[in-house]
Structure formats: C-alpha cells, structure tokens
Amino acid sequence: MTLLINLAGLLLMVGIVWWFWLSKSTTQSQPVSDQGTTIVVADGVYNPATLRARAGETLTLHFDRQDPSPCAEQVVFHGLDVSEFLETGTITTVTLNNPPAGEYRFTCQMQMYQGRLIVS
C-alpha cells in the first residue's frame, strides 16, 4: 500500500511536469487568417489558445470576451509591447503590426488566461 501510494504520487508529479511543461509545445495551433481570427475569452481560457502566423504580416485578432470577471479584462502580448482592454459583450480587435518571428505569450494581467502566438 505504502509503495503504491508513493508510486502514485511520483507518477502524478511526472504527469504534472509532462502535461503542463514538456508536452505544451505539441499543442494544436490555429493559423491567423487574413480576415482575422476570433478568440473567445471564457472560462479561464483563450480559445484558440495557440495561434500561428507568418512573419512580416499584420495580424488582426478579434477578442470576444464572454467572461465578466475582472481577470479577463486585459490581454497583454509579452515582448510585443501591446495590450488592450477587453469589454464584455463586444468584440475588441487587436492589431499586431508585423511582429518579428518568434514565440510570444499573450495573457491576462494575472497570467491566468494564457495563450501563445507563434510567428515563423
């Protein structure tokens, strides 16, 4: 029994590390279309949470904030110096002008909402 519980605990830890860190990069991403991509902000997640785009393009992202809690009120693009307040019940458009190639995180202020933008 003791061995079983310890083993379960260790497996759980390995699972946490693998799921939240190691396997993150393999998550499915959605390409940003020319007309812009709508990102729904609800229930603690951005949907889609991983976006893919080509370098040298202007990206248009439509944020549809459905979560009224203050956590969701701002989206911050780390490393791009872009942030925007999102209103509930309406769509807020964020335009990124030619972001250089790289991987950028976009999060709410508290970083509870987390998304990734991969520009290649």
Partner: peptide, 19 residues
C-alpha cells in the same frame, strides 16, 4: 461551477490557473 469548468478547459489546453 465556473472554477471547475475553467480548470477543465485550461487543463485541456495544457494550462493551469487559479481555477
């Protein structure tokens, strides 16, 4: 409910948050 829904959705996205 919102904590559990948020936690589940975040989990599916390989994220973890306050929920």
């Amino acid at each position: 409910r919102h904590f559990f829904v948020g936690a589940w959705k975040a989990f599916r996205n390989h994220n973890a948050n306050m929920d």
